[in-house]
Simulated assay, not measured.
Amino acid sequence: MPPVESPRRQKIPEIIRPNRIACAFWSLNQEMTPAHKVNFVREIDATAMDRLRQETHNGEGLKPSYTALIVKAATIALKEYPYANRAILGPPFFRRIVQFNNMDITVAIERNVPQAESVVLADTILDTDRKSLVQITRELQHSLTADAEQHPRWKLFFTLLSKMPVFLSRWVIRAPRYLPNEWVKHRGNACFVNSPAKYGIDFVIADMIWPLTVMFGWVKERPIAIDGKVEVRKTMPLSIIFDRRIMAGAPAARFFNRLAEILENADCELR
């Protein structure tokens, strides 16, 4: 006679209530407009990037991060193709295309915020056209580790998320989309750089509130065709997401191909 099974005990799902920080941060998602976005993806040879990183380390004692290389390459490409450095800003019924002339590029910086795992600091590196790869790398390192008192942008952002009433912090966080001067002050220009590469992610396609997002994946050895032969080299998955209301496909492709060219010839282009 088979054993009698006891009735299965139903597990009741746990309801997690988002805290103030998460609720305020989620307001940024409301600015994303994936209906207007298009993405391009390609895999590029990272040999020249690694060569430049090692040479810089030998000469200056610090190896530039891949993020710094992307920021610098995007700076060059934006200067050559200024039509990529635009955004549609303004209040409803009064939105217009704004041309940015500054080279202040914003980068996603992960900060450890208890009970708010989704919070990312968007830190702007100012005047990237005037800074070296080493200077940009040091600023990125500072953004990762500095406490609030050492980092005014992080202090302001964390205060908005944790101290203000949620309805007010949401309004303040979203205000730059209506005011071009505030956009430049708090969000830089049109370009945002993001990467989940350190978590072992190859390709990522993620809409952001910036009209142009440059993303790269895990740099590692992969098979690649070189002069008709298959070789194993380090490669970088590279992608952009752009607002097609600002750039059509062909102009965006020219920008993207130039960006890839700069990175694949980094030891010449980024010195």
Rank of each mutant, 00 (worst) to 15 (best):
D123L: 04
E43S: 10
A122V: 10
T128R: 11
H36Y: 13
I12A: 02
F203K: 05
V184G: 01
N39R: 02
Y178G: 00
T47Y: 09
L160D: 02
R111K: 09
P251T: 04
I246D: 02
R271E: 13
F93E: 10
T159I: 00
V214H: 08
N101M: 04
D129T: 14
Y178F: 13
C268W: 05
D123T: 12
D202L: 11
Y199G: 14
T33M: 03
I16M: 03
S132I: 15
I21V: 14
L28E: 07
A225G: 08
M103P: 08
G59N: 15
L168C: 00
I224L: 12
T128S: 15
R9W: 07
A35D: 11
L238H: 08
E80C: 02
I16P: 00
Y178R: 02
V166N: 00
P114V: 00
I70S: 02
I262N: 04
T137V: 13
L212M: 12
L160H: 01
N257F: 04
W154D: 02
V134Y: 11
V219E: 09
P223L: 04
A206D: 14
M49R: 09
R17M: 04
K37Y: 13
I105T: 11
R245H: 01
I70T: 05
K220I: 12
I88G: 01
A84F: 06
